[in-house]
Structure formats: C-alpha cells, structure tokens
Write a protein that binds this DNA or RNA. Structure first.
Lengths: 217, 217
DNA sequence: GTCTATATGTCGATAGAC
DNA sequence: GTCTATCGACATATAGAC
C-alpha cells in the first residue's frame, strides 16, 4: 500500500515526485495510485473472486471512494483485463526468450519451469487469477487472452515433442504429460502462498526434479 | 434435462410416477427436479462462476421461474454447498476404502489416481467447482469443506511418506511431490472436458504412468 | 409445485462541485 | 484527482394466489 503521509502531499506533483523521492524505498516500493489500485484489486479478486469484489471494496482498501477509481480505470473490467493480459504477455515474452536460447528441449523445459516459479513469486496475486478468474473477461480481451494462452501451450507441447524425437524424454502421452506439467505450474501460486519462506532457488530445483525427473529418458 | 412432454404430466403424481415409468431410460437418466436443478447449477456455476450465475439463470435453464427453485433449495448458497460437500464426501469415503484395502503405498496411490479419474468422469461439472468456486462457501459449510479437504491431503501425504520410508518412492520433497500430484488430479476435469472421447481405462493408466512413474524408486 | 408480484438491497457507472 | 449524490439495472428471497 502507498505510504500516505508522503504520497498524499505529492498527489498533484506526479512528475516531480519521481525526481524528489527514489522509485524504490528499502522496505516498500513507491507505486503510482494506478499501480496500487491494480495490486489491491488483484489481491481482492483472488480472495473473493472478480464478481464478488465490488468497486467499493477496492476503493475502501485504497482509502478512497469508488468513484475515484474511474479516474484511473474506465471500468472494473479494465482492471481485470489489464492484470490478466499483462501476465499473459510476460509468459509469451518468456517463451520467446526460451525458444531463442539455443538450449536443447530439456534445457528449455528447465528454463520454462524457472520462468513459472519466478513469475509466481513476483506476481503471486495476479498469477492466481489465471487459474479461474479469466472466465470473467469480456470481449475483445477474452479472445486476446485465449489466443496467447493457446499459443503458449502449443509451443510448450512442441518442445515436449522435440524432446521425445531426440530421445531425451520418455515415450509418454505428450498431451497428458503437458497437461500434468502445466497443472502443477499453474497451481504453484497456491502452494507458494502457504510456503513463502521457501527459498526461491530451492523451489526451482525441486520443481525441476519433480516435474522433469519423471519424464526424462 | 427432464423430458418435459412426459414429466409435466406427472408433476402432481410424484409417487405414482416411479411406479409408472422406469427410473432409468436407455438414453437419459430420469432425475427428480431437485437433482436436475443441481446438475444445471453445477454446469452454470462452472461456466460463469457462482456469483455471476443468478437464480434466474438456473431457473431459465430448467424452464421454470426463479421463485420455484426455493421449493427445492432454501437458498442459492445451499445449492453450492450441497454440490461441493457431496464431492468432498465422495473423496473422503474413497480415501477410507483405499486405506483399508491392504495395498502397499504405491498400490494405494494407484487406487487414489483411479478414484480421481472416475469421479472426474462421472461428476465433471461438480468436480470443476473444487478448483475455485469453494471460496464462495459460507459458514458453517466452508469450515466443514475445509476440514474434509485438509484431512484428505494429510492422508495423501501420509501415504507418500510411508512409500518413501519403505524405499518404494524416490527421495523427493514430499510437500512438492504431493502438491504436484494433487494439482494434476484437480485439473483433470479441464483436460477431460476437451477430450471426452478418451477411454476411461486408458486415461487411468496414462495418469498412473505420468504421475507415479516420476516418483517411484 | 409453480406462478405473479414485490420487498429490500447492492452493484457499476456517471454528473458535477471543489 | 477526489468527493457527494444519484440513476437504473439486477440480485436474492418472500408472500400469497392457484
């Protein structure tokens, strides 16, 4: 949350503020009001669901009135879609990086697992929305989201198939192996929320051992 | 859905009807209105979410008025809780059967995978609610649901630990192996919905190979 | 058991003052 | 950029006729 005693003074000095105070404090990130609303909404959407979270709920958590949110977002739907499409883009970009890394299929799968772990740790609330809240996206966002998700899954599957062709992976049903890996990666936010003290690097290695150990040749 | 041309005639002959027509037809199961409402609600809750599904939506799918539903359920919440608690009880009972089967830990895990596959195929819509819609349960149902879910996970974990002690399973982090298996099993409904033609027995074997192959010693 | 009518509340979003 | 005030739509649930 924004540190009010400072932030309220700077409300009308938005551009100056970035010159006067550092972008990161040692304890809390100084965020714009819009970013703060996004983070609040992600947390509430995750906890209660999109439909059960009212603009008044989000506003109360931000200590403002509901009408004020409309100066930053044109609708509640826009808050949800900005959160989900941002995460989808991060995964899409990550996949591109992995595919152009030159690693072999097993190495690419390792990188993808690390990608999921890191995004999960860094954006736990927003990533939780991927599991179920995307159904509340309206057009045209829904179509765009689905397109990115389907592309991601197709490229993931391609890597699995290449690994099988090169004899690096066991001869499992690719469909089911893919679904199994993605399920675990998608639910990771849930496990991590109850184990936030688990070291990130150890989690990456354990996930790689668990998910990849079972399918490597 | 109920076959209306027959069912409407028998509306006031409820007890007689069970004598006059068979309980199961060769094509569609003849269900009570209450069961039909449950199935409709499960499908809509899954598709749009609990909060976004109105009593009018459910009623329209049943070709009755919203007020009529209150003759079968005392609230919308009761529809949700009856669906979720029924599934939780089926898993709890299944776990009891597995634990008293006398099989070794690996055999018990196999049985649990078969349990998930079968319940997923038989109650696809209701089981989908386990993934996310349980957050809309209100007390005291929420507490009861959580208690059953936590017990199930604890007993699952116990079997994994026994397997490790007996040298039947690899030395993975039990927490993460458990979470990984449960994730795949919980998301199975999603995969199955897009692959309904996949034979149940083949799916069971593939799931066992994928989930157990990676952790067996 | 289903209907019509309605009580009662909350929601998303907008208008306009400051 | 935030506020107060408010509109119109739709939600759950109930009362009572048939």
């Amino acid at each position: 949350m924004i540190r009010w005693e400072i932030a309220s003074i700077l409300l009308n000095l938005d551009r100056l503020s970035s010159l006067l105070i550092p972008q990161r404090s040692s304890i809390t990130m100084v965020r714009s009001r819009k970013e703060s609303i996004s983070a609040c909404a992600a947390r509430l959407f995750r906890k209660r669901g999109y439909q059960a979270t009212s603009m008044r709920d989000i506003a109360e958590a931000e200590s403002i009135k509901a009408a004020s949110i409309y100066n930053h977002f044109k609708s509640k739907q826009e808050i949800l879609s900005s959160l989900l499409l941002r995460m989808a883009r991060l995964f899409t970009q990550g996949m591109q990086t992995v595919k152009t890394s030159g690693a072999d299929p097993v190495g690419q799968l390792e990188q993808l697992i690390r990608l999921h772990v890191r995004l999960t740790i860094e954006h736990t609330d927003a990533i939780a929305l991927i599991a179920g809240e995307w159904i509340h996206l309206e057009e045209p966002h829904l179509q765009e989201y689905r397109r990115m998700r389907d592309s991601y899954e197709a490229e993931f599957k391609e890597i699995l198939n290449e690994g099988k062709q090169q004899g690096l992976l066991r001869d499992l049903a690719t469909d089911i192996a893919l679904f199994s890996m993605l399920s675990s990666l998608r639910w990771l936010y849930s496990w991590y929320s109850r184990n936030r003290d688990y070291p990130a690097e150890k989690l990456e290695e354990e996930m790689i051992a668990t998910l990849l150990g079972g399918i490597k040749a």
